[in-house]
């Protein structure tokens, strides 16, 4: 990418970096929102979140390659089926493992590390070690004066915004959202009011996993599906959730935008390794010195 420097002035180059950063931020916001919901409502850290992302991508490839006809048809099928399948898997994992250890915070981390290995290795055994491409549902490009830009990437941003708005409405306006928020504030009192907390937990865990999978389906036509692809989304989601404040949804969205744009710009002008070093150290220092997150807003 930096080779473009020779041909382009700084302005268009920055525009390209901003566009790429916005796409990253959109997908990241979906993935991190899933992690943030699970942490907010259930008070557990799900290390297998990146694995749910990866499973979404791999399943999208699997579905898309088995649906005949136009690529758009396969893509739409994947967009519906992959998140549902991943949500079902997450619900089973919640019932079989997390519920039985009583959502103990530390035991949950160890257990989800175990789940992460199991899912990654299952994907390796079932789908093989190769990166798998998924064709984009459409291929038109938007022509800027300096470069052409994939229309699909802009569609990803729009789709992510729609989903984010839907989740936001669900949380703030619907009865299900009210029950989730009540459980988040005080699970004992929620239980006393007749709320089935177990069901809320399973549903939240499934919803969190589905959001990661959805982000992955959207990203897979840009970046191929691979059984180890969950590492970066997990790390970045962690960074977003922590910088935004653990459990704060508004903070998560703002942080996703900052980190996504920052990642786009820093990786274009510096090496990606340096960008990651700065980001990981930033997370550690934020947790040490400002545990409520940089934005400090509480949802």
């Amino acid at each position: 990418m930096p080779i473009l420097c020779n041909q382009m002035a700084f302005g268009p180059f920055l525009l390209l970096a901003l566009l790429e950063g916005t796409v990253t931020a959109a997908v990241l916001a979906l993935t991190a929102l899933g992690l943030s919901l699970v942490f907010g409502v259930m008070r557990v850290v799900n290390v297998a979140h990146g694995a749910f992302f990866m499973l979404g991508a791999v399943l999208a490839w699997f579905v898309a390659s088995h649906v005949p006809g136009a690529p758009a048809l396969g893509f739409v099928a994947a967009l519906v089926l992959a998140p549902l399948a991943v949500a079902a898997l997450a619900a089973v994992a919640d019932r079989l493992v997390l519920k039985r250890i009583g959502y103990d915070p530390e035991a949950t981390i160890v257990a989800t590390i175990g789940l992460l290995y199991i899912f990654e290795q299952a994907a390796l055994s079932l789908f093989g070690p190769d990166a798998r491409p998924v064709p984009a549902p459409f291929t038109w490009r938007i022509q800027f004066p300096w470069f052409g830009y994939s229309g699909y990437k802009l569609f990803v941003v729009a789709a992510a915004l729609v989903v984010l708005a839907a989740v936001w409405l669900m949380l703030t306006r619907s009865r299900a959202g009210l029950i989730m928020r009540a459980t988040q504030v005080d699970r004992q009192t929620a239980r006393a009011f007749g709320i089935n907390v177990d069901l809320v937990y399973t549903g939240t865990f499934a919803l969190g996993a589905a959001l990661a999978a959805l982000g992955a389906v959207l990203v897979v036509p840009i970046q191929q599906a691979h059984y180890l692809m969950g590492g970066d989304p997990l790390l970045l989601s962690f960074i977003v959730v922590i910088i935004g404040g653990l459990g704060s949804l508004r903070g998560t969205l703002v942080a996703a935008l900052v980190i996504g744009l920052g990642d786009g710009i820093i990786s274009m002008f510096f090496t990606p390794t340096l960008a990651k070093i700065i980001a990981t150290l930033a997370v550690a220092l934020v947790l040490v010195f400002r545990p409520q997150g940089l934005f400090g807003a509480r949802a």
Partner: peptide, 28 residues
């Protein structure tokens, strides 16, 4: 000195992040 200012889940994440930064520094 830094990580022990936190506890529990935060301690796990802080130590994880420092170790990750160490790994990336080795590559860098």
């Amino acid at each position: 000195l830094l990580a022990l200012r936190t506890a529990g889940v935060s301690f796990m994440i802080v130590t994880l992040m420092f170790a990750q930064a160490g790994y990336l520094l080795i590559l860098y």
